[in-house]
Design a protein around this nucleic acid. Structure first.
Lengths: 362, 362
DNA sequence: GTGAAAGCGCTAACAA
DNA sequence: TTGTTAGCGCTTTCAC
């Protein structure tokens, strides 16, 4: 068993340094370093000896020393709003796996969609000297954090954020996402194709989620193109866990919506539960569609109708892009990954007559 | 706007060091350090001057330097099987929040329940010189990683793992979890109280999940105490996403179970979906209970019957305990947090006659 | 092929 | 109160 041993009294022998390995192997620290990293020329015999001694001593290189010297950490900072939402957790898993396969380490911070938390978290990560950042910010178009990163030339890649919206300029901020506008429009077109005409949108707060806004714009576009009137969205704080009174309001109107397009799956699933609590059947009386494609949506019955983002793939692509930027490669434009529609069972053909409205559909 | 500015050509002015701040402020680096950390005595005027210069220069302390010097990183390593399972993601969120509030940073690694990945990941975290580790291992009773940490005196806290099972010795490995045995027994007792007699268990593979085993032992205990015979559990790899053939097997037997106790929610929800796919009604024909209490279980209808663990709280408690251990406080025994039963709608009174069996219940 | 020495950025003795 | 200096562990010139 390799040293160091615990000293029995609870304290512990200090981890051996390269110096001690050098002493034990009877060579200089330079030689040890070269042998360990297979850098520079080292005699085979010497190298073997050093390696043997290092293993025997349980030597474990101290990355602080190495990184300080190299002014490079092989650490990627990750800053996300929350891990309680599966979409971010799954993305983080993708990031972590890909980072691991490139011998990178990740440092994770969550911000709860709060700009001041973004400020603090990014600062801490920069103090750590992460080589680059993967992050989702509340509003990528007006973000002091991104301004800072730009000003300091810190490489970063946005995930889920889609700055520039429908017209992402090639010169703009690097991001990896789906085309939220297009996806939103397609989902609403699907709802319209089912015969719905009064489609309403429930959305995360735009100030905290630019993608939510893009999806809404897609909704608007689809409605307008079909010659239908769109309504102001119901903006829902991401902390909301009960939508019943809002839904009662919405569906108690004279011309209540027959379909609800929710800007994320969490919202959609909450809505479905609350609708059922209110005695409304989904999709028979109200159709509901979400956005994200989190795995749990498939466990519902009926399966959640939603836009599926390649969440883990977004994370992996972000790592790849970030590593390119860190390596100094030129930014060639965002990675717009493909989404798909999952035509589950929570949105169906519009019923002939909606139960809640006193006015028949046009 | 603080320096450094980007140099226009894409390269970037190096971040200023304490040395440069010292030069600009006309003092020594020691004074800058003292002023910045409010350590030692510094004249008010000097301090103000230093702080002003530091801000103006956009100085950001390099934690590698600080940590190398302090042989301490204020970084907690976190090693979990996967973030795709909400129970771990929510726990990580709890860890991150609590760590942040103690000015600690976290480094995250996932292992996919693979022992060799645990080995590699822990080694990387130790090379990073994390101050301690929060981790879930496949088998806490026989873990080379934990043996290593013990041997080297690295502080760590297990989450979800419950080494020692029903009799955790005070001297044993530090952990934070619910009492999996007790919780499993109580859930099965609940099923029995609903009139079920043939309860079967579906479990994650014991080799990859000691909690799964504890929950099974609880099942055994409840069955035995009621004078019923327990069956071998159906062990399910955590990668399984379709249980239909297994369920057909199980329910096609002569005396099929009327209730299924699943060792985690993910499994339970998959099972419920697959049962419905097979044309079986839940809970009318088969009752299903889970374990974990992930949020999405509440979005199902009916709501998932399950054991609710205080997942985020487990994460927070783990951080607190780990920080105590790092501070050198003596380990006073595990934190066994309280679970609750969520009596949702997926488990109900046993039907008089089960449809699938040819043999009537005793 | 190997070693001596400088230095990455910071803190903490020790001096003044 | 402030400055000088050593050194945390490592890599990398530059000699030899």
């Amino acid at each position: 068993m390799p040293n160091p041993q615990p000293s029995g009294d609870g304290s512990v022998a200090k981890a051996p340094t390269i110096k001690e390995v050098a002493a034990a192997a009877g060579v200089s620290v330079a030689t040890v370093s070269r042998a360990l990293n297979a850098s520079g020329a080292v005699h085979g015999t010497t190298s073997a000896k050093v390696l043997a001694v290092a293993r025997q001593l349980g030597f474990r290189p101290n990355l602080m020393g190495r990184n300080l010297r190299a002014t490079r950490t092989r650490t990627l900072g990750v800053m996300l709003p929350t891990l309680n939402h599966p979409v971010f957790a799954e993305c983080l898993q993708g990031i972590e796996t890909q980072a691991q396969s490139h011998q990178q380490v990740i440092a994770v911070s969550t911000t709860g969609y709060q700009v001041d938390a973004e400020e603090r978290a990014s600062e801490r990560l920069l103090q750590q000297r992460v080589d680059g950042l993967i992050l989702t910010v509340a509003d990528a178009a007006h973000s002091s954090v991104l301004d800072k990163l730009d000003a300091e030339g810190v490489p970063y890649v946005l995930v889920f954020n889609q700055p520039g919206g429908t017209q992402p300029s090639l010169a703009a901020r690097p991001f990896v996402s789906v085309d939220n506008f297009l996806a939103g429009r397609q989902m609403v077109e699907h709802l319209l194709s089912l015969g719905h005409q009064r489609v309403h949108m429930l959305a995360g707060q735009f100030q905290q989620s630019d993608r939510s806004l893009q999806r809404f714009l897609g909704y608007q576009a689809a409605m307008s193109a079909a010659g239908l009137t769109w309504s102001q969205p119901l903006e829902v704080p991401f902390t909301t866990c009960d939508m019943r009174s809002e839904l009662q309001d919405l569906l108690g109107r004279r011309s209540p919506p027959t379909a609800l397009f929710c800007s994320n799956d969490q919202l959609a699933m909450t809505v479905i539960r609350d609708l059922r609590d209110l005695g409304l059947r989904v999709p028979e009386q109200v159709s509901v569609a979400g956005f994200d494609g989190v795995q749990v949506g498939e466990w519902l019955s009926p399966v959640l109708t939603t836009v599926v983002q390649p969440t883990a793939e977004i994370g992996r692509a972000a790592v790849d892009l970030l590593l390119q930027l860190i390596a100094g490669e030129r930014y060639l434009g965002p990675a717009l990954l493909h989404h798909t529609l999952r035509l589950g069972g929570t949105a169906s053909q519009r019923a002939q007559q909606h139960q809640a409205g006193s006015v028949p559909p046009p």
